[in-house]
C-alpha cells in the first residue's frame, strides 16, 4: 500500500460519512462536505482510517466479507451463551486471564482483532503487549497459551492476515 493513497482514502471515507449524516444530496451540502473533507485529509494526511493499510484487492475484499460474516456469527453465539449464563440461577462462571499470541503487526489489524475478541464468546481483551494478548475468559476452557490461541485468536487471524497482509 503506497502512502500517496492514504489521504485519498481518508477523504473518501470522510465525504461518505458527511453525506450519510446530512442525508441529503443538495449541491450546497455536497460542496461543503467536499471542502471540509479535503481540508481534513490535507491537514491530517496520516489520519488513522480503517481502510488505510488494507489491501483493496479482490482477495482482500473477499476476506473482509468472510471476516464480517464470521464475526457476526460469533457475536450471536456469544450472546446466546452469555444469556444462558446470566439466566442460570447457579451463575456457573470460571473466569481466568489467559495469554494468547498473535502474528499480526499492522496496528489497525491488531485493533480489529482485539475488538473482535472482545465481542465473541466469553472473551475480553485486557492488555496488548508486543505479540502477546491478555484475554479475560468468563468460562475458561484452558489456561495453556497455545490452546487458548487456537481457541480464541486463530479464527479471526486467518482473515485479518489476508486483509492486512
Amino acid at each position: 500500500m503506497s502512502d500517496a493513497q492514504r489521504p485519498l482514502k481518508l477523504f473518501a471515507t470522510l465525504l461518505l460519512f458527511w453525506m450519510i449524516l446530512n442525508g441529503s444530496l443538495a449541491p450546497d451540502v455536497f460542496l461543503a462536505g467536499l471542502a471540509i473533507s479535503a481540508a481534513i485529509a490535507f491537514l491530517l494526511p496520516g489520519g488513522l482510517s480503517v481502510l488505510c493499510g488494507a489491501r483493496l484487492s479482490l482477495r482482500g475484499v473477499g476476506a473482509a466479507l468472510g471476516f464480517t460474516g464470521f464475526f457476526l456469527r460469533e457475536l450471536v453465539v456469544a450472546n446466546l451463551r452469555m444469556a444462558g449464563l446470566v439466566l442460570n440461577p447457579a451463575l456457573p462462571v470460571r473466569p481466568a486471564i489467559v495469554r494468547v499470541e498473535t502474528r499480526l503487526t499492522d496496528p489497525v489489524a491488531r485493533l480489529l482483532l482485539a475488538n473482535a475478541i472482545t465481542l465473541t464468546p466469553g472473551t475480553l481483551s485486557v492488555e496488548l503487549s508486543g505479540r502477546w494478548l491478555y484475554v479475560h475468559w468468563v468460562v475458561a476452557e484452558t489456561t495453556d497459551p497455545q490452546e487458548a490461541t487456537r481457541a480464541i485468536v486463530a479464527g479471526f487471524e486467518n482473515y485479518l492476515e489476508v486483509i492486512y497482509g
Partner: peptide, 8 residues
C-alpha cells in the same frame, strides 16, 4: 471463582 491470571 477465578482460576488463573496470566497477566499478573
Amino acid at each position: 471463582q477465578t482460576v488463573a491470571d496470566a497477566l499478573a
